[in-house]
């Protein structure tokens, strides 16, 4: 334990996802000790991000405006929608440069132990987008783990009523993992080799 505010800082950092007590301590001391670190800019950035970042009205991706850059881009193929769990999955797929369609961010995956059911995900908005006849294919790119699979199965069943091609990312992704951690090549291949579910 350290005195007062240093410990407060460490505690705050260790509340963040993916940061354990050791890393929190390292980051805190880095901030305290590094001479040419622009702490003011970092603090301002954090505050600005919280104020200005919104979620895209159409796809749910993080965005600085009402709608995100991808949804606004007229060159993107609006006949195909890739469904992902989180915004960070959008970023991961964009890095592969394999996909030129639009996205839909669900905001998680079905997981009863986390208290998340279909009603807690952005599924109704997705159905509304699909009601627009211009969409011909939906790619389900939920995480390759049990919850991601369950969500994909749920959506597949829901989509059977529509005249839309539904595909799932090809296997080859590390099973049990997170989409965002798959490397570009693997993820790119998974896109090419996606399998049509119906």
């Amino acid at each position: 334990m350290y005195e007062g505010i240093v410990q407060d800082l460490i505690d705050e950092f260790s509340r963040l996802p993916g940061i354990g007590p050791k890393s929190a301590q390292r980051i805190a001391f880095h901030i305290v000790q590094t001479e040419n670190l622009d702490v003011t800019r970092l603090a301002e950035l954090l505050a600005t991000v919280r104020e200005n970042i919104k979620f895209c009205r159409i796809c749910g991706n993080v965005s600085e405006q009402e709608t995100c850059g991808i949804c606004r881009d007229p060159r993107r193929d609006s006949t195909i929608i890739c469904v992902v769990e989180e915004s960070k999955d959008v970023a991961a797929i964009e890095r592969t440069r394999e996909f030129r369609g639009l996205y839909h961010v669900l905001g998680g995956a079905i997981s009863p132990i986390d208290g998340i059911g279909p009603d807690d995900l952005s599924i109704q908005p997705l159905m509304q987008r699909l009601a627009d006849a211009s969409v011909t294919e939906v790619i389900l790119a939920t995480d390759p783990n049990l919850e991601g699979e369950a969500t994909a199965t749920y959506l597949t069943r829901l989509l059977t009523t529509l005249e839309i091609r539904v595909s799932r990312l090809a296997s080859g992704l590390p099973v049990g993992g997170d989409l965002e951690y798959a490397d570009e090549v693997t993820l790119g291949r998974a896109f090419e080799g996606r399998t049509t579910l119906r």
Binding site: I110, S111, P112, I113, G117, P118, D119, I123, L146, E147, E149, A150, T153, Y154, R157
Partner: peptide, 27 residues
Amino acid sequence: QRNTLLKSLRGGLSAAQEQTLTIWDEK
């Protein structure tokens, strides 16, 4: 996952949530 869902179904849940049970059944 399935046990948690079964427990919460006792309290009555939405139709959508009911439907997810069969997914866990199959798994």
